[in-house]
Amino acid sequence: MELNATRPSRAVPPVSVTLYYEILCPGCRGFISQQLFPTWTMLQDIMTVTLVPYGNAKACIIHLTGHSAFQIIYCMESAANVLNAAQPCLQLYAPSVSWARVSSCVTGDLGNQLMHANAVMTRALSPAHTHVPWVTFYGGVKPPACNGAPVRLNRSSC
């Protein structure tokens, strides 16, 4: 099926979604793999996602991989074992980033700095978070799908 919708105006800033989460939390894993990533996949033209993990390896992967980070995190979070999936997911989505660089980040000062920055961002939440996953939204204009507008599907694409 194809979605028959108009593209949003590029003059409108995208909706900014920030997710504060713990890397091994089952609820966070489910939210990322079953809700946030599929939504981002459909709405990435009008949506930006910032991930603020509590977990050193995740912070390093996000820092080192840039635009591929969300796909890597999704790959890891949807795997049976998050930590065992890290290296294969990194190689799949960011083959130019070596596992040695991630490991060096995790065990070095950079990893500690990244985790500290994430802790500062989390502590600055207002209102303060009471659980994870914790999601914040800023900016943008609601697309028709969020306003209850009917969406017409083109079913002739088989």
Rank of each mutant, 00 (worst) to 15 (best):
L125H: 11
I32E: 01
A86L: 10
N84R: 08
L90D: 03
N118W: 11
T39F: 03
L64S: 06
H129M: 08
A80V: 09
T39M: 06
I73P: 00
N81Q: 14
P13K: 07
L64C: 07
V12R: 02
M76S: 12
I46G: 02
Q87M: 02
V120Q: 15
M76E: 14
K142P: 10
Y138K: 14
T122Q: 08
P133I: 15
Y74I: 11
H131N: 05
P95E: 04
L92C: 08
V12K: 02
V135R: 07
F70T: 12
P26D: 11
G139I: 10
C75M: 01
P133A: 14
T107K: 14
I46T: 07
M47I: 15
T107L: 13
N147P: 03
G140A: 04
H67E: 10
V106W: 07
S126Y: 14
L90H: 08
N56M: 15
L51D: 14
A69C: 09
P144C: 12
H67P: 03
G148V: 13
I23L: 07
V97K: 02
A128R: 15
T136S: 05
A128K: 15
P95A: 01
A57D: 12
A100G: 05
P26G: 13
G108S: 14
L19Y: 07
P143M: 13
I32K: 03
P13E: 10
F70S: 13
W134C: 03
L110A: 01
M42Y: 12
Q35F: 02
V97E: 07
C75P: 04
P144A: 04
S103I: 00
F137S: 07
G66C: 12
H131V: 11
Q91G: 02
R29T: 09
N147D: 14
C146A: 15
Y138R: 15
I72M: 09
L125T: 10
F137C: 02
S68L: 07
G30H: 02
A128T: 15
R101W: 05
L36C: 05
Q113S: 11
G108V: 01
R29W: 02
T122A: 15
A69F: 01
C25V: 04
W99A: 11
Q34C: 04
Y138Q: 13
L114R: 04
L114F: 06
P95Y: 07
G27D: 06
S103T: 05
A59H: 04
A128P: 12
I62G: 09
N56Y: 09
N112A: 14
M115C: 10
C25G: 02
Q71V: 00
V106C: 06
M121K: 15
D45P: 00
T122R: 09
R101D: 14
Q87E: 14
P143D: 10
C75Q: 04
Y93V: 12
T122G: 13
A57S: 11
Q34F: 01
M115T: 11
I73Q: 06
A57L: 09
C60W: 01
T107A: 15
P13L: 10
W134I: 09
P88H: 01
P127L: 03
P95W: 09
I32F: 00
V49H: 12
N81R: 08
T41H: 12
L90A: 07
W134E: 02
I46L: 03
T65H: 09
V132S: 05
V135G: 02
L114P: 04
R101I: 00
A94C: 12
A59N: 10
L24V: 08
C60N: 11
A11R: 11
K58E: 11
V17R: 05
A100W: 02
L43I: 00
S78E: 08
Y21T: 00
G111N: 03
S78A: 06
